[in-house]
């Protein structure tokens, strides 16, 4: 069951091996209210890392600590938004969200403002299988954000979203940060409107370099430059 939501996350020497691909060792820690953005190419290990954090897979080495404790089932304390929502395609959006809310003890009325902000309220009666890429992505994000946990992990949340929805998403991320929630999210490309993170993870071939950001001297432009520098190194 969900304990008191807490956002303190510490990762020590986390490793995962899949055939020839080796992730880690990865070390970093995040306090409540911090945002970390992870940037990397396809196949660099972002999704693997997120699945480990979300408790969908067991790491082969190292540990993931929440408030300094090992948690038996990470998916109870971490909200995970993956590349797809995994709902039954025959169900309506309303039914899917109601199920998720019920399983987490959340009143569905409380997420209606969020649905309106994202513009998903018009699709409530549609079947999940008929949604477009962007709308399905909104459903994925909302299903993760509607849960009451301390840590939110979003895998490429801006992928497929229109400009308006991306702004709404970032507004929600800031709001959750202010509420003391820890947020991890991955990006392919920068739009130029990302919130400035507390930490940036640059991941390549399973190896991640974590940069601490001094937010006072670091702006949006610096972040974009950091990402483009990283990608230019990758090409060489």
């Amino acid at each position: 069951m969900i304990q008191k939501p807490s956002g303190n996350l510490a990762i020590n020497n986390l490793t995962y091996q899949y055939k020839k691909f080796r992730l880690g060792p990865i070390d970093f820690s995040l306090a409540g209210g911090e945002l970390m953005i992870i940037v990397g190419n396809n196949g660099a290990g972002k999704s693997t890392l997120f699945r480990l954090l979300g408790g969908l897979m067991r790491p082969h080495g190292g540990e993931i600590l929440i408030d300094g404790n090992l948690v038996p089932y990470l998916n109870e304390v971490v909200s995970l938004g993956l590349d797809q929502h995994y709902y039954d395609k025959n169900e309506t959006v309303r039914h899917c969200l109601a199920t998720t809310c019920k399983r987490n003890g959340v009143d569905i009325d409380t997420i209606i403002p969020m649905l309106q902000d994202f513009g998903l309220d018009a699709y409530l009666s549609n079947r999940v299988g008929t949604l477009s890429l962007g709308t399905a992505k909104k459903l994925t994000i909302i299903s993760a954000l509607s849960r009451q946990t301390g840590i939110y992990v979003l895998d490429e949340p801006n992928n497929g979203l229109d400009y308006e929805a991306v702004n709404v998403l970032y507004r929600y991320i800031s709001r959750y940060q202010h509420a003391g929630k820890t947020i991890l999210m991955s990006l392919h490309l920068t739009n130029g409107n990302e919130p400035v993170p507390n930490k940036v993870g640059l991941i390549r071939d399973g190896q991640m370099v974590v940069n601490d950001i001094d937010q006072a001297n670091f702006g949006q432009a610096d972040f974009s430059k950091m990402v483009s520098d990283f990608y230019s190194q990758t090409r060489v």
């Binding site: 408790g55 995970l80 399983r103 299903s143």
Partner: peptide, 12 residues
Amino acid sequence: AVMRLKLDGLSG
């Protein structure tokens, strides 16, 4: 389906 249940916080 199991993935969805896990994403909804059900485990064990």
